[in-house]
């Protein structure tokens, strides 16, 4: 149940705790090693600290105690993030939105154009570069958001329940596409979700968390090799994995109560 062979650690969190306002323990004693190439899901009920963990990793908040270490330098374009909502700027076109990470580093549009086009091509929006976000469907907006997170070819992409608000058909399609994109990019992904099915389909490591206080209960490996396609969802192997993860989540819920 540990890291896959041949993967080098990218990020090590040791005994990380986060307490808000001196009393609310959002995250307790989290130790986790994220390896390069992992597709890691943080699964748990609301209030289990999975979003807090993500914000800690993103550097948006700092741990109350414990340590969070990156191997090697963390450069400006090494981290991409996708939120629950698409979080696009409505006054900018699709390609200008994807330009943002480069723009903030002082890279001109013309200079970044190739990367922008490539990212939009990868998410299947090559024809919508000049559209404004309001003209897109919910799923397409999410694709733009993903393209923006990937455009700098980061080492690590964080996704915080990105597909929770989408319908099931769109979600399945985006799950399939996300795996393809990850393979094409060769990056590491940390994916926060509260869907057992999504976590099993996507990841090779599922971290099950419990609430109050937020903590890790167990880790399960999903050893089905990639590429995984739509037929994986109906396989017995998939059913077996979801049963295991559901049981672990059930324990987590029991532990919380």
């Amino acid at each position: 149940m540990t890291a896959r062979h041949g993967r080098r650690p990218l990020l090590t969190m040791s005994r990380v705790e986060k307490t808000f306002g001196g009393e609310t323990v959002a995250l307790k004693d989290l130790s986790l090693t994220v390896n390069g190439g992992d597709f890691l899901s943080l699964l748990g009920p609301s209030g289990c600290g999975k979003s807090t963990a993500l914000r800690l990793i993103a550097g948006l908040i700092h741990p109350t105690s414990g340590r969070l270490e990156w191997s090697g330098e963390r450069g400006a374009g090494d981290l991409g993030i996708v939120f629950q909502e698409p979080t696009l700027m409505p006054w900018m076109t699709v390609s200008q939105n994807v330009w943002l990470p480069y723009r903030l580093r002082g890279k001109g549009f013309a200079e970044a154009q190739r990367d922008i086009d490539a990212a939009l091509e990868l998410v299947g929006l090559a024809e919508f570069t000049e559209a404004y976000p309001r003209e897109l469907s919910g799923g397409m907006k999410m694709r733009v958001s993903i393209a923006r997170a990937m455009v700098t070819r980061p080492r690590l992409i964080l996704l915080d329940e990105p597909f929770a608000a989408l319908d099931e058909i769109t979600r399945f399609k985006l799950n399939d596409d996300l795996l393809e994109m990850k393979a094409a990019l060769g990056c590491t992904v940390i994916f926060v979700t509260h869907s057992v099915f999504e976590s099993v389909f996507l990841s090779d490591r599922v971290i099950v968390m419990a609430a109050r206080p937020g903590r890790v209960i167990s880790e399960l490996g999903i050893d089905t090799p990639y590429p995984r396609h739509a037929d994986f969802r109906t396989s017995n192997e998939y059913a077996a994995h979801t049963r295991d993860v559901s049981n672990a989540l059930g324990e987590a819920m029991g532990a919380a109560a």
């Binding site: 914000r55 993103a58 550097g59 948006l60 400006a76 981290l79 993030i81 939120f83 979080t87 943002l100 990470p101 903030l104 580093r105």
Partner: peptide, 8 residues
């Protein structure tokens, strides 16, 4: 948050 992450 996004602007913070990208060091704006």
């Amino acid at each position: 948050d996004l602007f913070t992450i990208y060091g704006a």
